[in-house]
């Protein structure tokens, strides 16, 4: 038997991801368990911690304060700065501390998503800094970071249109699903993995972040976005509950 024929036989005998089911036995629309808390960093104006499965993100907000450096100050609106950082022990291989191409890009992506939810025109010539540390990364760290940053901004008393939930939906082999884990992102059999992080403003019905890494058909993309929005609405409820429980339990 030639090598080509063996390969073909293997492909025929391999079960699709849809047939075998997800690695952690979740349903396609099921998210990992989520924990949120706010206001635990005393030196910040607002802070939040979000745990999505094994991914943990901590966000701290400083400001509004004087914009520095002065030449970057915006005369008519708030200057928002986001710093995203992977802690060196957050991934199996040690992450090199300090800024990298990836962290700079993610900081920028998170900033542009968050900017849509804030009334930036209320704070001219001032600056708000959002520091995000990913303490443990198991995929979906940018989505966990957006949730944490949004909660921290609300905790700091910044005027916002809405809280911003985010979720990574995608396609693994032939299965469109939400909230991918690292093991799923590394699944390269069949059609391989496709990662689509989505951030969504439920009140405005507006998608503020949409990235795509992989291959996906038009129909499947529409399905993934639909599933992502439903998941975001669920996260939004939990975010509100987190804020309420802080003040109601007192």
């Amino acid at each position: 038997m030639t090598a080509k024929k063996t390969e073909e036989k293997k492909t025929e005998s391999r079960k699709s991801y849809k047939a075998t089911g997800r690695i952690d036995k979740r349903k396609a629309t099921e998210m990992r368990p989520m924990e949120m808390s706010i206001g635990f960093l005393p030196n910040c104006a607002g802070s939040a911690r979000v745990k999505v499965g094994n991914t943990i993100a901590i966000a701290g907000v400083y400001g509004p304060k004087k914009a520095r450096p002065k030449h970057e100050e915006l005369k008519d609106k708030l200057l928002l700065r986001c710093y995203y950082d992977l802690v060196s022990f957050s991934v199996p291989d040690r992450a090199r501390p300090g800024p990298s191409r990836r962290s700079t890009e993610l900081g920028m992506v998170i900033k542009s998503a968050l900017e849509r939810s804030i009334f930036t025109e209320f704070y001219p010539r001032s600056m708000v800094e959002v520091f995000i540390e990913v303490v443990q990364a198991d995929a979906g760290s940018r989505c966990a970071s957006i949730i944490a940053a949004s909660l921290a901004l609300a905790d700091a008393g910044i005027e916002m249109r809405d809280l911003m939930p985010a979720v990574a939906c995608g396609k693994i082999d032939d299965l469109v699903c939400v909230d991918l884990t690292k093991a799923e992102e590394d699944y390269h059999e069949g059609e391989g993995p496709t990662d689509i992080p989505i951030a969504y403003l439920p009140n405005q019905d507006e998608i503020t972040l949409l990235q795509l890494d992989g291959k996906i058909s038009k129909e499947e993309l529409a399905q993934a976005i639909k599933m992502g929005i439903v998941a975001c609405k669920e996260i939004h409820k939990q975010m509100k509950q987190t804020i309420r429980s802080k003040y109601e339990k007192r």
Partner: peptide
């Protein structure tokens, strides 16, 4: 903002919990 609602009839007032 995160606030507490104070409602008397049609008169609505929000008491902010935090904020600069």
């Amino acid at each position: 903002i995160v606030s507490k609602a104070s409602i008397k009839g049609d008169n609505i007032r929000l008491i902010a919990m935090k904020g600069a």
